[in-house]
Write a protein that binds this DNA or RNA. Structure first.
Lengths: 111, 111
DNA sequence: ATATTATATTGCAATATTACGATGATTAAA
DNA sequence: TTTAATCATCGTAATATTGCAATATAATAT
């Protein structure tokens, strides 16, 4: 049916999945990496850097913005994007907690 | 066109995106969390826990297995799943590195 | 005012994902 | 051996995602 049954899961599970989903495209990973390196960038920078069409980059930027991991500021005729500090920390902590929860293989019960 | 242009990105970017994509569904987050709590589980456990059909759970387990984050062992008539230690550590480090790369907002250049 | 630059949005085609019933394969129990 | 239990795979319907050309919007420059 193609539609995720979000009602079966907790708000936290849905949020984690939504964030992971946004990172689940190499263009969006590349945009994040570019921002980590350059602090800011505009759509046009990414068009040159990634080799995708302007409309496509704009769409990826929107998804990153919607989940809150980046923010955009109008700067004359262009829009300057950067990492959203608070949101970055928030997701970092959520996923660190997940990763740290793993204790390592249990010799008795592990398959 | 619906097909990701993987050729435009580095192997690392594609790998990170593929892993994030697998985590990008609440059922798969829930499966991971269940495994973190119980060490092992079988398909039937998850059907009861999550409320999705057996075929659907099986499909999600396959995706987690394909990326390597879990492994399955035949245990009589059932299959016992658990976290794949090495792969877990590998992804943990890749994503920790990404998250730690962020230095915080730069007052001069940040938007 | 007009042209230029930069980005967002719309509409569309191709492909991918999600979910599940039905079916098949395998093991254990009766 | 028949039955039940467990899981994977196939086929299919509904929906989502990806990518881009065309167009719209907004700011700046001429």
């Amino acid at each position: 049916m193609g539609v995720t049954k979000s009602a079966l899961f907790t708000a936290e599970q849905n949020q984690m999945a939504q964030f992971a989903k946004v990172l689940g495209h190499p263009a969006r990973i590349a945009i994040i990496q570019y921002l980590l390196k350059s602090n800011t960038c505009i759509n046009g920078d990414l068009v040159l850097e990634l080799g995708l069409a302007q409309a496509t980059i704009s769409q990826h930027l929107r998804e990153l913005k919607e989940i809150g991991i980046i923010q955009g500021t109008i700067e004359g005729a262009s829009v300057s994007y950067c990492i959203h500090h608070g949101r970055w920390i928030e997701f970092k902590e959520i996923f660190s907690a997940l990763f740290d929860q793993y204790e390592g293989p249990d010799a008795n019960t592990c398959c």
